[in-house]
Design a protein around this nucleic acid. Structure first.
Length: 350
DNA sequence: AAACCGGGGGG
DNA sequence: CCCCCAGGTTT
């Protein structure tokens, strides 16, 4: 027996012995029932899906029943599962299947993948489980299993790694009992070969697992590379009038710091000309614009480098906003870095 | 707080 | 093609 045959055989023996065989979608395995389960399971664990699946099947027992529903009704049964685009795709696909295919799902991979919300892995799973066609699958569970079993030294999101994993998934899929195998390898990933603390002691394929042999199980699968956060730079201008009041603007409701009061923000290259056109001071020798030390702030998705500029003795201004005493300003809802800047104003009070 | 997840859609 | 996203769960 070859290594690949041994993998499938060992997995199937484990599945017969220890796998789950009584899940709702494992009874009466029609393409419709399997498809609904696969879509729900894409985003949610088995235990959560079970009650949703049962209510959904009661409400929409057939693809015809689903196709006739309106979107609101479908989404009400989806409510709590998240990713509502997938609930909408579910309805779209049901309508296509009923209107274009007389209620029968396409029985080939291409046709299945053309339906909204169905990609290669979901198409493979439905055709394998409901239509007894041999197709590999590669969902998150399977990727994790294969990355460990083969000690894959790269992240599965890389195109070439993913292509290799599909090839490996295909090689390991047996010629017989591929429907059970599809279930089995997903079960293995979900119950034993878990993301953290995998239960290697109970694993049926431990002996040939490369990660196990290397004693490097925790190294796989490789994590997605953290994308470097982009850096953006903005000028923020601290404007003071003769009464030592500071000028604040309320930010637009949408976007960063939505609705909060903040300093006037301008792009770096335009801000000086912009200020000159909008602001006048008592000083007649031009604007005495002073740049303060750079100020850094990190958001979830980017770094912001603030170039603070300071301008005193402002006599008139043509910008939307209001003047506040420093203590008034500090009592407002300010973004944390802006608060720190304005606090410097308070302490440098002379 | 951050990683994760299948497929869709935009740049 | 590559990047980003949704939105709830897990760590």
């Amino acid at each position: 027996m070859s290594d690949t045959e041994e993998f499938a055989q060992t997995l199937l023996e484990w599945f017969d012995r220890s796998g789950r065989h009584d899940l709702p979608w494992q009874q009466n395995k029609t393409p419709y029932r399997v498809w609904v389960s696969e879509i729900m399971l894409q985003q949610t664990q088995v235990q959560t899906v079970i009650p949703y699946y049962e209510r959904f099947m009661e409400a929409f027992p057939t693809v015809e029943a689903l196709a006739q529903a309106d979107q609101e009704e479908v989404l009400s049964h989806w409510s709590g599962l998240g990713y509502y685009a997938r609930g909408r795709n579910l309805l779209k696909t049901a309508q296509i299947v009923v209107n274009d295919f007389q209620g029968h799902f396409p029985q080939d991979l291409e046709g299945m993948m053309a339906l909204p919300g169905i990609g290669r892995s979901t198409a493979g799973a439905v055709l394998s489980i409901a239509s007894q066609q041999r197709h590999p699958i590669l969902d998150g569970n399977v990727k994790r299993v294969l990355c460990r079993y083969n000690a894959v030294e790269s992240w599965s999101g890389e195109k070439k790694t993913e292509a290799m994993l599909w090839k490996r998934a295909d090689e390991l899929t047996p010629e017989q009992r591929f429907d059970d195998y599809t279930q089995a390898i997903m079960d293995l990933g979900a119950t034993l070969c878990t993301r953290s603390k995998p239960k290697c002691d109970a694993c049926p394929v431990q002996k040939n697992c490369q990660a196990w042999q290397l004693n490097r199980v925790a190294d796989f699968p490789y994590a997605k590379p953290k994308k470097a956060k982009p850096t953006r730079e903005k000028a923020m201008t601290i404007l003071l009038n003769e009464n030592r009041q500071v000028f604040l603007q309320q930010r637009p409701q949408k976007g960063i710091w939505g609705g909060l009061w903040s300093l006037p923000e301008m792009s770096l290259d335009q801000h000086e000309t912009h200020i000159k056109s909008k602001v006048e001071t008592r000083c007649d020798k031009g604007l005495n614009l002073i740049e303060w030390p750079l100020f850094k702030h990190t958001f979830t998705h980017y770094h912001l480098i603030i170039h603070p500029f300071f301008l005193d003795e402002v006599s008139s201004i043509k910008l939307e906003g209001e003047w506040f005493t420093v203590s008034e300003a500090l009592s407002k809802g300010l973004p944390a870095p802006i608060r720190k800047l304005i606090k410097q104003l308070e302490s440098s009070n002379d």
